[in-house]
């Protein structure tokens, strides 16, 4: 098999604070294949967005990459300087943020922002860039793009603005789009449209997507594979169907059973007791063990390695021991 588009190896992101060094992301590893949709789920603070920001090189100081490697298309990119990274951003890796209402600069016409982005990455003159901008707007489903291109962001609705944002992200045909909760700020009725739009556009172009969300429904519909993050670590990673049907890690099973189901008649949802630990109080051993119903001996002592369990990979002592990785 050819090399994955993106490889993340033991990525560590730290925040130096006055009191202590906080590890927000602790040795995360995963791959994204070309054209694949990888869902990244986890609670708030699990390190999803930070991982995305680290890939595109936009970690906000004082956050910094303290270890590990990010390899994109065979090239290590976590140590590139500002200009080299800038040439990658937008051109090969694009990012979509949560809130479309604030992602667009209110003072510039939608077309100006599109043309600016297109011309930054592609050698097109003004007319060509404008034509391309109109084509992009058409493609993301903006009605009457020829006139709408001269509108200002405040003249667009939330869903339409997120479409514009997607058009901006696709402007230079990137290989990978990091979508950081692209639908959280939108109406439920619009969410599905935006997700299917993003999915179809990327499928047609062979663009890989790292879809960061905490909405398992979105993941189930969209993602090829899922990585479940917990307290800055990968708890489980595997094919979406496997993860949903037979979750391996107790945290994943907890997540799955906390999704309301149409079929069962249960009155109450099952919930995972407790909450994710704060960064300055991550327990020793497996960080999930205080909340885990299956915790036993080794869980309190040492962090479990990520091992193959069936088709998936999980970081849990229930499986690590079986494979002899003690």
């Amino acid at each position: 098999m050819s090399q994955p588009l993106l490889q993340i190896r033991d990525l560590v992101i730290e925040f130096p604070t006055r009191r202590a060094l906080l590890r927000a992301v602790d040795q995360i590893s995963f791959d994204i294949e070309a054209g694949e949709v990888l869902g990244v789920v986890g609670e708030s603070g699990a390190g999803k967005s930070l991982t995305g920001a680290a890939i595109i090189g936009l970690l906000e100081p004082p956050g910094r990459i303290a270890g590990g490697e990010i390899i994109f298309a065979g090239q290590r990119i976590d140590n590139l300087d500002h200009d080299q990274m800038r040439k990658l951003r937008g051109k090969r890796i694009a990012m979509i943020f949560q809130d479309p209402l604030t992602s667009l600069n209110p003072l510039y016409r939608v077309g100006e922002q599109l043309v600016e982005t297109i011309q930054t990455h592609l050698p097109l003159n003004n007319t060509e860039a404008r034509e391309r901008a109109i084509a992009l707007l058409d493609e993301v489903g903006i009605p009457a793009p020829v006139t709408r291109i001269d509108g200002y962001p405040h003249q667009f609705s939330g869903g339409m603005r997120q479409r514009v944002v997607i058009a901006l992200a696709l402007a230079a045909e990137p290989d990978l789009i990091i979508a950081d909760e692209p639908t959280t700020a939108l109406d439920v009725s619009v969410q599905a449209q935006i997700i299917s739009l993003l999915k179809n556009l990327c499928k047609n172009r062979g663009t890989a997507v790292m879809l960061i969300t905490h909405d398992m429904g979105v993941i189930a519909e969209t993602a090829d594979r899922v990585a479940v993050l917990y307290a800055g670590q990968v708890a489980e990673i595997g094919k979406t169907q496997d993860l949903i049907k037979s979750p391996k890690h107790p945290y994943t099973s907890g997540l799955m059973s906390s999704i309301p189901s149409m079929e069962s008649d249960e009155d109450r949802l099952i919930q995972i007791p407790g909450s994710m630990p704060r960064l300055n109080a991550i327990p020793q051993g497996c960080s999930f063990h205080p909340r885990c119903s299956k915790a036993f001996g080794p869980c309190t002592e040492k962090r479990a390695p990520l091992v193959d369990v069936g088709e998936s990979r999980a970081a849990c002592w229930l499986y690590a021991a079986e494979n002899g990785n003690g």
């Binding site: 936009l58 800038r86 949560q98 992602s103």
Partner: peptide, 26 residues
């Protein structure tokens, strides 16, 4: 600190375009 500056960076615009075109005008 705003999102549109973050997004402008993520689009790969040059530092000059981000700082003076997008930030200063606002």
């Amino acid at each position: 600190r705003t999102d549109y500056i973050k997004f402008a960076r993520a689009r790969g615009l040059s530092r000059k375009a981000v700082n003076f075109g997008h930030a200063l005008k606002n």
